[in-house]
Amino acid sequence: MNRKEQFLDNHEPVQSGSRKILRLGIGLAAAIGFIILIVSWFLLVVPWMMNSSLAFKKPAMNVNTEEVVTPSVQNIKDEIARLNSKLERLTPGGSYLVINTTENTFSLYRGKQLIREGVCSTGSYVKLELDHQTSWTFKTPKGVFTVKGKLTNPVWRKPDWAFVEEGLPVPPADHHSRFEYGVLGDYALNLGNGYLIHGTLYKRFLGLPVTHGCVRMNDEDLEMVYQTLPQGAKVFIY
């Protein structure tokens, strides 16, 4: 064995190990680089290309400019003014109420003018289950309603769920235990289908979704709303 062979024989295992590590390192770096390339290709490069002039080479349009009659600027301006006034007329001229059931807030308007805003409480989205067949979901309906009636010193006629919720037996329809006095505040506005805007004893919950579907307000707001909204006024709930 000459000196060179002897040297290789002595050093090859060490060199082979470090080469392996080097190769692994290069391979790993290449793989990571490739993954970065792929991710940026899909998330950055291609979306950029789809928004670049590459994607918007003007197609050959069959435009016959002589046949295309475009309205004049004045015509369009007149039309815009007409449409704007038509849209304006859709907003009630009198008072109306807008209720936000997500934020539990209300805004009272007269025409386009905001005259009062504040917190209220709306449906809790609790689904009360008595058994597999009977359940109630306490949500405030969304849409446009009209004030069907106005009441002072309203009396709450407790529906079945009020008894079920408290674990009490449901009494007959006109049983005296169904009527509770003073819990709805001084005023109530009837929106139909059993939904009311009324006051509450639980003022600490105003601003939270806790009701059984009615809209609750504090005494001052309720009085203002009661006095401002006539019968037939619109109530928008969203």
């Binding site: 997500t102 934020e103 539990n104 809790s124 989205y125 609790v126 689904k127 009360l128 289950e129 008595l130 979901t137 949500k139 009020a162 079920v164 919720e165 408290e166 674990g167 004893l201 639980y202 919950f205 939270l208 979704p209 806790v210």
Partner: peptide, 24 residues
Amino acid sequence: KAPVTVKKAAHVSQETKSEVPDTL
């Protein structure tokens, strides 16, 4: 869309509980 929570008929109504679930 509607954050409904299901509850079985209980002995205590929601208002008298000290904590009200606030999904908002």
